[in-house]
């Protein structure tokens, strides 16, 4: 009979590990197929060159979503001067699912540029994939909605979101939940109507339509005015694509966009690891139990032998 010593044990372990790595790889290949979003989903194309910073979208959002009264009237432009900790502009909060910020661009003939900001409704949302209670849903219409009834307030989505969108209801002591823009899904989008902010905008900064058509429209605008626009639609490919798309006449990093997010959906960075988890949980216990049994077999046999010897003598 083959003796199990440390050398053989390690050899077996390596073989097992290699087999495991092979299975892991196969699973990874299978899991890496991207979802890429629903083909006919709706979206919004935002053209910052047309925004005049009137904050009507903020007021419309507040009314449509039944949000609490703002700290300042929506006609108050002093909010544009609010620079928060870390030199950052205003961000979405539990009371404001969309905000407009002003960016002073030296040498821009039209003066400062305004940027409307809200949930980008990613094609493959990081918030959704990070949520362990499955509170989030990407609807076929394109909205990323959430079920606040199952939200446990763990705030993982807030960390996962590459755009820092989900906000926390810190004001609620009894039921603090995560809150964000849902593209007016309940009241408008599911009935084929545009989000309230889109309809309210006096400048028609935003165009509501099928995402695939909006991408074409965006590229047409760039083509017709090559000297005006930056030749890029933010959101076409970023983090796997977003339902909200943006056109600008100043480089996107100057209007508060993160231009280093890459085009891979956030889930891709953790897919390999997540695919390994079930394998590790199912295969490892059996594998190592086997190792343990093999390793202790001789010992057990010895003990038995000793016992019988002891009895026999």
């Amino acid at each position: 009979m083959k003796k199990i010593d440390r050398r053989n044990f390690l050899k077996g372990g390596l073989a097992g590990g290699a087999a495991l790595a092979a299975t892991g790889k196969a699973t990874k290949a299978e899991a890496s197929g991207s979802f890429g979003g629903y083909p006919n989903s709706m979206g919004v194309l935002v053209d910052f060159t047309k925004c005049v910073g009137c904050r009507t979208c903020e007021a419309a959002c507040n009314k449509e979503q039944g949000l609490p009264a703002p700290d300042k009237p929506f006609t108050d432009k002093s909010v544009f001067d609010e620079i928060h900790h870390g030199k950052r502009h205003r961000r979405t909060t539990e009371k404001a699912f969309t905000v407009v910020n002003r960016y002073d661009i030296p040498g821009r003939a039209e003066g400062p540029i305004y940027r409307k900001f809200q949930c980008n409704h990613c094609q493959e949302p990081a918030c959704l994939t990070s949520c362990f209670v499955n509170a989030y849903t990407k609807t076929p219409e394109g909205a990323v909605i959430y079920n606040s009834k199952v939200c446990v307030g763990c705030r993982t989505c807030m960390i996962a979101c590459p755009f820092y969108v989900p906000a926390y209801a810190y004001s609620s002591a009894t039921n603090p939940i995560v809150r964000k823009c849902i593209m007016c899904y309940d009241t408008r989008l599911k009935f084929g109507r545009p989000p309230a902010c889109v309809e309210a905008c006096p400048q028609e900064v935003m165009v509501f339509g099928r995402r695939k058509d909006l991408i074409k429209m965006g590229h047409e605008r760039i083509k017709e005015h090559p000297d005006k626009y930056v030749d890029h639609i933010y959101g076409e490919n970023e983090v796997g694509g977003t339902s909200w798309l943006y056109l600008s006449d100043v480089p996107f990093d100057q209007v508060g966009f993160d231009t280093h997010l890459g085009n891979e959906p956030i889930i891709s960075y953790v897919k390999d690891f997540l695919a390994m988890v079930p394998i590790v949980l199912t295969v490892w216990p059996a594998l190592f139990t086997g190792f343990h049994l093999l390793a202790t077999r001789k010992e057990e046999a010895n003990t038995k032998e000793n016992e019988s010897k002891g009895r026999g003598v």
């Binding site: 007021a59 703002p70 609010e82």
Partner: peptide, 20 residues
Amino acid sequence: AFYRTGKFAPPPAKHEAGEE
């Protein structure tokens, strides 16, 4: 009423309190 201004404006005391 929509823009929460004029007679619908939030009380001014809240301005400072609301600041981060």
